[in-house]
Amino acid sequence: MELDLDESSLAIGRIERALSRIEKALANPPKQPPSASAAPAADQSALRAEVAAVIGELDRLIAEADRG
């Protein structure tokens, strides 16, 4: 039997796994003291911007898919 997953299914699988990794990382306590592990403010800001951008892109894709 030959199974063929389309690219969108593969991408969704990757996204789900990455989100799971993020969830897991956020649930785990920091490995080092906060002072040493805290990311610089610029990195934090870039991270937030990237999260917002990805969420925006996902929203756009979902809206397009809803329009068919």
């Binding site: 690219e7 996204i15 990794r21 993020i22 920091p30 996902l58 894709l61």
Partner: peptide, 26 residues
């Protein structure tokens, strides 16, 4: 559809990169 697929793959790349960053920060 291919355009959507490409966009989804790009988002997957970006979320994976985000996951890596979050894992490094945590």
């Amino acid at each position: 559809k291919p355009a959507h697929d490409r966009a989804l793959l790009q988002i997957a790349d970006r979320i994976e990169a985000l996951a890596t960053k979050v894992e490094q920060i945590s």
